[in-house]
């Protein structure tokens, strides 16, 4: 299970990469592995305001549908439309090609609730 160095993580296994006032969001390698073969990604609408810890996307695997929670608050400015046709990219490259959305951050985002890569790795060890 890989943990990408320069990202921040949630306890629900989403990652976020913050650059200026924008953030790219995805799910971690641990999450894609736990979900299994991903068959569908429900992308949020561009322009939608998403709130930290609230559902902003749903990912379906062969076995189940799982909610994806926003790691950060903001307005969706771009979504990864490749996932409409090729949701399996979420399995093969969760940290790069498998990004889900880019948001413009708002002031309400609490970065302190996120874990850095080292803490996330420690957290993963506490899960079986």
């Amino acid at each position: 299970m890989t943990v990408e160095k320069n990202l921040l993580y949630t306890r629900d296994h989403e990652w976020v990469k913050i650059e200026g006032n924008q953030a790219t969001i995805g799910i971690s390698d641990y999450a894609q592995h736990a979900l299994g073969d991903i068959t569908f990604v429900e992308l949020p609408a561009v322009g939608k305001d998403i709130k930290q810890q609230e559902t902003f996307s749903t990912v379906e695997s062969v076995k189940a549908a799982s909610d994806i929670y926003a790691p950060i608050s903001g307005k969706v400015i771009k979504v990864n439309e490749v996932l409409n046709e090729a949701p399996e990219v979420l399995n093969s490259d969760p940290y790069n090609e498998g990004w889900i959305a880019i948001v413009e951050l708002d002031d309400l985002s609490k970065k302190e609730s996120l874990m850095d890569a080292v803490s996330y790795e420690e957290y993963l060890k506490t899960l079986d």
Partner: peptide
Amino acid sequence: AKFGPFGGWDMPISYSGIIQ
């Protein structure tokens, strides 16, 4: 394998991935 319960048994659900 990934395991899961089925009918009272601990069974393999998948190895390389269900679709494969």
